[in-house]
Design a protein around this nucleic acid. Sequence first.
DNA 1: CGGTTTATGTTTACGACGTAATCCAGTTTT
DNA 2: AAAACTGGATTACGTCGTAAACATAAACCG
Lengths: 191, 191
Amino acid sequence: MRALGERLGVEAMSLYRYLPSKAALLDAAVESVLAGVTPPDPADPDWRGQVLGSARSFRQAIADHPRMVPLIQARGPKLPKLEAVWRASHLVWESAGADPYTANQLQLAVGAYVIGAPLWEASLDRDTADEATDEPAVAFVRTAEKLRRELAFELGLGLLLDGIESELKRRAPKLKCQEAGPAPTPVEMAS
Amino acid sequence: MRALGERLGVEAMSLYRYLPSKAALLDAAVESVLAGVTPPDPADPDWRGQVLGSARSFRQAIADHPRMVPLIQARGPKLPKLEAVWRASHLVWESAGADPYTANQLQLAVGAYVIGAPLWEASLDRDTADEATDEPAVAFVRTAEKLRRELAFELGLGLLLDGIESELKRRAPKLKCQEAGPAPTPVEMAS
DNA sequence: CGGTTTATGTTTACGACGTAATCCAGTTTT
DNA sequence: AAAACTGGATTACGTCGTAAACATAAACCG
């Protein structure tokens, strides 16, 4: 607070004219970082495309602000944005042919990857990334590193979705073949 | 420190006879939590089994100590244990038929899931899990929830490995069919 | 045995932190 | 002109990690 005040050319306590507490400030910062995250787009007929789009937007938000990762993690699932994306994604799985229980499992698994991976990646970078350098070679290696990780994220997500795709086909082959008939007795669970 | 001292029946400053700093204490705590993590076992001929075993041990360590997650994340890849597991896992991919670059990508992707997922899960639980309750129904729901998430972790990891398995077969079919011949010109990259 | 290290604690104090309480000078509104 | 509001400064409190110095008992050694 004192440091922020100084950076704004103002005494620390003056900030409290605008903010009830430091926590509120951090909340607002997190919210602004997550503003760019887009839920899966229901207009897209391809569920892969929906999931990929949302996943990429989340990864981008994290990659743009690695220092915010601990704050995001601390707030965790209470964040309205993430909750909304979560719920919307759940619907994607159901519309892709999963029964509610399976949809839940798939969403947990994919969500774990999509959210967990950038969180971990950020801590991979954190030590080296923030100190700017004029050394061109160093900067080049860093961006190459970043690109490599982005590709790895895409690769892993793609392979995970591959696995899900064949699993969905395996569980509901009739829905894919003759495009009609009731769901083939999915596993029943108390929700 | 003061609180820990009180819990040990001792003044806060006495702790500094044994520890150089609070950071060192937290380092030791993290190390002890990660002691139970096992690297992939090279004796296992099945690379799926190797990866699964290591992944489960990591997930277990996190699940047993959810409060440590921020500390683990803060130390990130500097942790010797994680670095060792990381390197050992890399070898698994190469022995499974991946060229070095692909092995790196696969390890990044799987590592992101295996490490990221429990980190995220822990923050899902953190709010509710630590307050103990005598209400049997509440306790039951919580353990059911935990089990459900464990299954989701297994499901997601299994599907990801499924995807990897078919991708590996796709990239190196000769290695799988006639078990001989040189690797089919993998993508070359400066390491 | 007496004297000296060594191990274990305590006490006090410092600077940094978030922030509650108070006051103060312009500016706007009635 | 009087009242209310706005944006800001000051001071002070309690908490944190920990540096520095001091105390006390055990262990060791001639």
